[in-house]
Computed example of a mutant assay.
Amino acid sequence: MNAHQPDTGAPSLQADELVAKISAYVLEFFRKRGKAVYLSAIGQWLSSEEIDFRSVVGEQGLAGFLQEAASEKLKVISHPEDTKILAVLPAEEADNTGAWPEPSTPKHHARRRPRIEGKIWEAFNAELSDGETRWLALQPTHDWQDNSSGKPSGNYLEIERRFIYPHATISGSRVDAVYELISEWCKLHNVNVVDLFHVPSGEGRGSALSLLLSVLDTPDLSRISMPLDVVAKLQRHSVR
């Protein structure tokens, strides 16, 4: 046993094991999206998986550890417009400038987001147990449930595990990631994003969105598909 690592009763994580875990995560992310992974997102993912990476990387930090221990598999890069933003790519993609992620959006320039109804927000955020499937009902009311016995009776659609935040391979802030997952899920299932939108009592009166919802009937609404940022714009725009 290493004299510097006391016996805690649980097997300690080795450097090569940590490199293997991070490499698999980065490779899978790049395979799906063709983009680098923010270094901060890797740290968040490791923490969410309860992987004690800090005891392995030590004072050099995650970036220094990857540069030293994983240089043959991974490449730590900085964005050309903001060198403080670090991301990680498969080593063979190090010269792929198109794979560099965009700089984070400054708070004062952050996009306003439409408010997603609470039950739906929960359905894309709550962890899903192994062996179970998540189902979401949009009509007549928003509801979701997990089970291992197949589709429940009623108007339920499956939320595939890859669209549920704790299990998704996605970088960026949690809020941005969940909105992206919801948008992709809507496209896959041909769901009208308006069905997920919630206008609290007293909000949205006189907005273009409220006018749209009041004029169109259910069959009309079922034929409408619009991205979440357009919904937010309609809510902000007042109709005089």
Rank of each mutant, 00 (worst) to 15 (best):
M1A: 02
M1T: 01
H4I: 13
H4V: 12
H4G: 12
Q5R: 05
P6F: 02
G9S: 01
A10S: 09
E17S: 07
L18Q: 09
A20D: 14
A20I: 08
K21G: 02
K21I: 13
S23P: 02
A24G: 10
A24M: 06
V26W: 04
E28K: 05
F30S: 05
R31H: 12
K32W: 04
G34F: 10
G34R: 07
G34H: 08
A36Q: 01
Y38S: 09
A41Y: 00
A41S: 15
A41F: 00
W45F: 02
S47F: 00
E49S: 04
E50C: 10
V57K: 04
Q60I: 09
F65W: 07
L66D: 08
K73A: 13
K75P: 00
I77A: 14
H79A: 13
D82M: 04
T83W: 06
I85L: 13
A87H: 13
A87E: 12
V88F: 04
V88C: 07
V88A: 10
L89D: 04
P90R: 12
E93P: 03
D95C: 04
T97W: 03
T97L: 10
P101R: 10
P101Q: 14
T105N: 03
T105R: 03
P106G: 11
P106Q: 06
K107R: 08
H108K: 10
H109W: 11
H109D: 09
R111T: 00
E117I: 14
A126G: 05
L128K: 15
S129W: 05
T133M: 14
R134T: 08
L138T: 07
L138E: 06
Q139F: 03
Q139W: 09
W144Y: 15
K151R: 10
P152S: 04
P152H: 05
S153R: 13
G154N: 07
N155Q: 13
Y156H: 12
L157N: 07
E160G: 05
P166L: 14
I170M: 12
G172N: 15
S173P: 11
S183K: 10
C186P: 07
H189C: 10
V191I: 15
V191S: 08
V194P: 02
D195I: 01
H198K: 08
G202V: 00
G204T: 04
G206V: 01
S207F: 05
A208R: 14
S210F: 00
L211P: 02
P219R: 01
D220H: 06
D220E: 09
R223L: 04
I224V: 14
V230K: 13
V230I: 14
A232I: 07
K233Y: 09
K233F: 13
K233I: 10
R236N: 03
R236I: 14
R236G: 08
R236P: 02
V239P: 03
R240L: 01
